[in-house]
């Protein structure tokens, strides 16, 4: 767990909510839900050591491995 990254992301998330909430008031609940859930996913991800973790990029690289080998030859 990386506290610095997590806390700064949380701080940014709060700023975003403060900035967007007044404008969201007249919009539907779906919009609000989308914003909050996307922020929460981001917050969740920011807790990990992302650089060393397997993720979309490494999955894709593994998926295209046979073609990647062709490029390395």
């Amino acid at each position: 767990m990386k506290w610095a990254a997590f806390l700064s992301t949380a701080f940014i998330a709060i700023l975003i909510i403060l900035y967007e909430w007044p404008k969201l008031k007249q919009k539907s609940a779906k919009d609000k839900l989308a914003l909050v859930s996307l922020l929460l996913i981001g917050l969740l991800l920011s807790m990990f050591h992302l650089q060393e973790m397997a993720g979309p990029t490494s999955w894709i690289e593994a998926f295209f491995r046979p073609l990647g080998e062709f490029m390395e030859r």
Binding site: T9, I12, A13, I16, Y19, E20, K23, L24, K27, D31, A34, L35, L38, L39, I41, G42, L45, S46
Partner: peptide, 10 residues
């Protein structure tokens, strides 16, 4: 517009 910011974090 509202989801621009969280996408930026993504």
């Amino acid at each position: 517009r509202p989801i621009v910011w969280p996408l930026g974090i993504f």
